[in-house]
């Protein structure tokens, strides 16, 4: 396309040069400078809405990235440090800063049980990248959930896709439920700690035991139990 345009332009210039040469007495230049079209970026925006389906597990602020390469996690493989940091302490900053990220966005606040939050994320000129979302169930040791690498090419403007997701276990912390190991309001304990690795692979989560169900050392009570699914997640392309 471009080269054809160039040739066309060139022949125009040549013709007008000839015209000019032919009518040298004409002092008004008929040749208008052809403006080079400046490429304008087109915003492509998605909204991610997450509803917390649990009884008493607040979710940490949503971490959302658009990327081409990589996964936020893979079942059966070891969690990245960025995922571990999010899954143990609810801190999504390292996930948002991943080098593979082409765009990122964060929720403004935790999402309480029964509540929803919507995060917008915008990228320029790309409609075929992938989106991933992660959030921690904060009244646990290292439970998290989210969407890993959904192909945005599936969505035209106005389209949306909805899923319900299960709770996952980062495998980076023993599920002791012990005092001072859980960052959520049930405990106010420690979040991320690079040590304490458990099985050290990401799996589905087995749920919490709680002190109401035979784990006397648990700071959790019956209200903190959950079953799958734990969230409903919708991605909508709005422009």
């Amino acid at each position: 396309m471009k080269s054809r345009k160039k040739i066309k332009l060139l022949s125009l210039v040549v013709t007008s040069a000839m015209l000019l040469a032919a009518c040298s007495d004409n002092d008004t230049d008929p040749v208008q400078p052809v403006p080079v079209p400046t490429p304008t970026s087109v915003d492509v925006t998605y909204e991610v809405t997450v509803t917390n389906l649990t009884n008493a597990q607040p979710l940490s602020p949503l971490g959302v990235i658009i990327h081409d390469e990589g996964h936020l996690w893979t079942i059966g493989e070891t969690a990245s440090l960025a995922l571990e940091t999010m899954a143990e302490g609810g801190d999504n900053s390292q996930l948002l800063a991943l080098p593979v990220g082409l765009a990122n966005a964060s929720g403004m606040a935790p999402i309480g049980p029964g509540n929803s939050d919507t995060v917008s994320i915008t990228i320029q000129d790309r409609v075929d990248s992938y989106i991933s979302v992660a959030t921690m169930l904060v009244n646990t040791n290292d439970a998290f959930t989210g969407l890993d690498k959904y192909n945005l090419a599936e969505l035209a403007v106005g389209d949306s896709q909805t899923w319900r997701f299960a709770a996952l276990d980062a495998g980076t912390e023993e599920n002791s439920e012990a005092m001072s190991t859980i960052p959520g309001p049930a405990d106010g304990g420690e979040g991320f700690n690079a040590n304490r690795e458990a099985r050290n692979i990401v799996t589905y989560h087995a749920g919490v035991v709680t002190n109401a169900d035979g784990l006397d050392t648990s700071v959790l009570d019956a209200s903190h139990k959950f079953d799958n699914p734990v969230i409903r997640l919708t991605v909508t392309r709005i422009e």
Binding site: E174, N175, H205, A206, V209, L215, D227, N228
Partner: peptide, 12 residues
Amino acid sequence: NTVHRWLNPVAK
């Protein structure tokens, strides 16, 4: 009780 439990689904 903190290890040998599960929630569905259990296999893919």
